[in-house]
């Protein structure tokens, strides 16, 4: 059977599947006891936000993410093996094992950093936008954050600055309905979050986060606007399929809600659409999914086999390497008490 593989959806589907499968493997890494800790926040159900917006960005654009940012980083070109190694706390990982899931970054791909402080990475894009303007570059900087960050003042400060200075910035709120265990309607007086754009004169929009084509389309428009000095605020509505972090069994929400929320599955929806449009048949998609599964399976072994950090590296990179590292407690003891420990 002939298949047509050049539609937008056909291009976007594989990355959504890669993110889904990667995060399932992150869960396995944890179950196998090979993750560094349990502070692992999965974006399963939110893949269209990462892939739709990520596809609308260009090389040279920069971004910050929140603690639930694996998907965005993959969508912007991350190597899943180096990500998994970082999540396992290995020297081979993106941040030499010092950052982990919540602080992953890669300057080469424009990832200015995942952030474990809710809203903490948002003002960085204002600075990146100022730098782009200063250097007459046409790069855009995108802040990805969750609905929980709409409770943080720093978001509104940064939205105001971006609008005031007409910076090449896009704010992307991935509204998965939950800030940890608190549903958005318990955390805000008006859950129509896109309206937050209005008082600042930003272009605001909300889009169905189960529809990656729709996300890519609106993100493309808004990033184009941002590049022209018209910053925006995009809300991608989706549902967090699993708990806040790996240890969270979501006791604060009922099964009926979860079942209904998981019906809004951007990966399944894309797959069914591809089949119903006759773009790719089911067996070709199965084969693609199996190849992705093999790729992601390999990340677990890669991470498990990766080098541990050297203990000596513990004092590295507190300050620039041209300056002396902090003195260790043992070093100081030896010096003061005159005994080698």
């Amino acid at each position: 059977m002939e298949t047509q593989t050049n539609s937008r959806l056909a291009e976007l589907y594989p990355m959504m599947r890669r993110i889904r499968t990667f995060e399932e493997r992150v869960g396995e890494l944890f179950v196998r006891g090979q993750s560094a800790g349990s502070m692992l926040h999965l974006s399963i159900g939110e893949e269209a936000a990462a892939v739709g917006v990520g596809a609308a960005m260009r090389d040279g654009d920069t971004f910050t993410t929140h603690h639930r940012g694996h998907g965005v980083f993959l969508a912007r070109g991350a190597d899943p093996r180096l990500m998994m190694a970082e999540i396992a706390g290995k020297e081979t990982g993106y941040c030499s094992g010092k950052g982990g899931s919540m602080h992953i970054a890669d300057m080469k791909l424009g990832h200015l950093g995942a952030n474990a402080i809710v809203g903490g990475g948002i003002p960085s894009v204002v600075g990146a936008g100022l730098a782009a303007r200063h250097k007459r570059s046409d790069s855009v900087s995108v802040a990805f954050f969750g609905d929980g960050a709409t409770g943080q003042g720093v978001l509104y400060e940064s939205m105001n600055m971006a609008a005031l200075w007409r910076l090449p910035v896009l704010f992307v709120c991935i509204n998965n309905q939950y800030g940890m265990g608190t549903r958005i309607d318990n955390a805000t007086a008006d859950p129509d979050l896109y309206k937050r754009a209005i008082p600042f004169g930003l272009k605001g929009a909300a889009v169905d986060g189960s529809d990656v084509e729709a996300v890519a389309e609106i993100a493309g428009e808004m990033i184009g606007d941002a590049r022209a000095g018209k910053p925006g605020f995009l809300v991608v509505d989706c549902y967090r399929f699993y708990g806040h972090a790996r240890m969270d069994k979501s006791p604060y929400r009922d099964d009926a809600e979860e079942s209904e929320g998981r019906l809004r599955d951007p990966v399944i929806k894309a797959r069914e659409t591809l089949i119903s449009r006759g773009e790719i048949d089911g067996s070709s998609l199965d084969e693609m999914d199996q190849n992705i599964a093999a790729e992601m399976d390999a990340t677990i072994d890669f991470a498990a086999d990766a080098r541990e950090p050297q203990l000596d590296s513990i004092f590295d990179d507190v300050y620039d390497p041209s300056t002396p590292p902090p003195e260790s407690v043992r070093g100081r003891l030896a010096r003061i008490l005159g005994q080698s420990q």
Binding site: I122, P123, S124, G127, L130, S158
Partner: peptide, 16 residues
């Protein structure tokens, strides 16, 4: 103030 300092962080990471 938080975004003044935060913008400085992002600007410093972007070559300013």
């Amino acid at each position: 103030e938080p975004s003044i300092v935060g913008a400085a962080v992002g600007a410093a990471m972007s070559g300013l």
